[in-house]
């Protein structure tokens, strides 16, 4: 740990509060949406993203750059979602075939049939594969960015994506 950073005197135009407001305005909604796609639960998604913003505010002095802040947020959100999902899997094993995840009839009606099928098919994927797919197609991240965000190698991103694509194609063809 750095004892006394003399080097930190260089300017940073934003303080933590300003950074929080700016990054919140630009990215809060998309972060919640990202988390909701990973978790399929908007309430939990909001909670997780809020935690990540609070954490970001706390380390703004180290990030000091909106791009780094965004990368940090993304990693925090994805990691939190992933461990939440792992937890859910454990819980699921002790519960009857779950209802809570089922969308209400109303909500479901708003989806196109195609989206419905894709979202259903995504549910069949293992957690890592699903995360890669969401970051790739919703987050529009590069392979390298996905690797950084998830803390895995680019090779793993590739193979998760390939496997996910293969099984999604299969499932979708069957349901088509």
């Amino acid at each position: 740990m750095v004892v006394y950073e003399e080097s930190v005197t260089h300017e940073s135009s934003w303080n933590a509060d300003e950074a929080l407001t700016a990054v919140y305005t630009a990215h809060y909604t998309s972060m919640v949406r990202l988390a909701a796609l990973l978790l399929r639960d908007t309430g939990t998604a909001e909670e997780i993203v809020q935690d990540a913003f609070v954490a970001m505010h706390g380390r703004w002095h180290r990030l000091r750059d909106p791009h780094k802040a965004l990368a940090y947020l993304r990693t925090a959100v994805v990691n939190r979602c992933r461990s939440r999902q792992r937890h859910l899997v454990v819980v699921d094993k002790h519960m009857p075939r779950s209802l809570p995840d089922e969308p209400s009839a109303e909500q479901a009606a708003l989806r196109t049939a195609e989206t419905d099928r894709v979202i259903e098919a995504m549910r069949t994927l293992p957690e890592k594969q699903r995360t890669v797919m969401v970051l790739r197609y919703y987050g529009d991240l590069s392979e390298a960015e996905i690797a950084d965000t998830m803390g895995i190698s680019r090779g793993s991103v590739k193979s998760h994506a390939a496997r996910a694509t293969k099984s999604l194609r299969q499932v979708l063809e069957q349901s088509a």
């Binding site: 990202l34 989206t115 894709v118 919703y138």
Partner: peptide, 10 residues
């Protein structure tokens, strides 16, 4: 299709 669906869901 993936982009469209995830964007719509989001």
């Amino acid at each position: 299709m993936m982009r469209r669906s995830l964007a719509e869901e989001a």
